[in-house]
Design a binder for these strands. Structure first.
Lengths: 185, 185
DNA sequence: GTCTATATCAAGATAGAC
DNA sequence: GTCTATCTTGATATAGAC
């Protein structure tokens, strides 16, 4: 995850903001360009297509989660419960971070329907998500049970996230996070 | 829910099939028309716009759930566990029903991002869903706890559904259903 | 590297013949 | 009620000047 090409990174960041506010399909290249202070033609200097841009956005989110969210699962410095708490807290912060009053949507699932290629890179994200949560549960529960708990946790988080967006509240996700922490007692 | 206007109903059914296979955004009026043996211009005899058609599709799904899924929650003929089982079984059947090898997606959540109008009618669907599940839990648990259990159940189902679609398996939802039934013991 | 201009295309929607 | 034909729009993408 090098920090070079800051211009490209800036566009990716602007695009992410728009995609999570209004979805991939409802966002035009013109809008993305405008939000980066460019005109749409100029985007094609950085990306070969809208799909190409989207893939880089997803990979960028995945990288962010690897470094700033999933990483908590593997930090022996803290207790399992602290690790889970940090993981959930950081995930919630990203998921719920407000932008123009709107909750972040789940880009991945929305776009999985678009093309098999997208679905594939999104699956990588969720496999890492599963693995991180499973690792924490495994400090307290046997492996098989940890796997089940992890899949369940991810499903609950994703489902809550949808309800949050639909009903314009953060309550569902917050309740879910509280519940999940209890499963480490 | 009258059974008149069978032609309109037939188009709605065809559209639903396409929407759940490839989402609202990826489905054109031409495709919908073709799947009903029409040309796209002819659709405008039945619907004033694509949005109008989509709303009628959502309402149609909601009506189906009221009659065939949620209704199980209010049938005193069976025990709570049997009611929940029937509700989940029928819901799973609808959610997972295969069409060209693809699982049904969650039309509602995908399209909630489109317009506030859609979000509103989708909320009605979920409020009914909550209420049905809550009613069953309330036969065994106190009201407040039942509400929490219901919200949690719906979130788990929706999240599992997404994972099923993403990973092309029905396992997540099946496991979730099993778990939810246990909460009535 | 960003611009202007434009090509290309597909979609939603409409008008009017049959 | 369905068709053909067309309008209109907005999107992705490209070409070439600066």
């Amino acid at each position: 995850m090098p920090l070079v090409k800051t211009d490209e990174q800036q566009i990716i960041k602007s695009a992410l903001k728009l995609f999570r506010k209004q979805s991939y399909f409802n966002t035009s290249m013109a809008e993305i360009a405008k939000s980066s202070g460019l005109l749409k033609g100029s985007l094609y200097h950085y990306f070969t297509s809208k799909e190409d841009l989207m893939k880089k956005v997803i990979i960028s989110v995945h990288d962010y989660f690897k470094s700033n969210v999933f990483s908590h699962a593997y930090n022996d410095q803290w207790s399992p419960k602290e690790r889970m708490s940090k993981l959930f807290e950081s995930a919630s912060h990203v998921f719920l971070y407000k932008e123009d009053g709107t909750f972040i949507g789940n880009i991945g699932v929305e776009s999985a329907v678009m093309s098999p290629e997208f679905a594939e890179i999104i699956r990588y994200f969720f496999l890492d998500f599963f693995h991180a949560v499973k690792t924490i549960y495994h400090t307290v529960h046997p492996l098989e049970e940890s796997e089940e708990l992890a899949e369940r946790a991810v499903a609950e988080i994703e489902g809550s996230l949808m309800l949050c967006r639909l009903f314009n509240t953060d309550q569902y996700l917050k309740n879910t996070m509280k519940r999940l922490l209890k499963r480490l007692d």
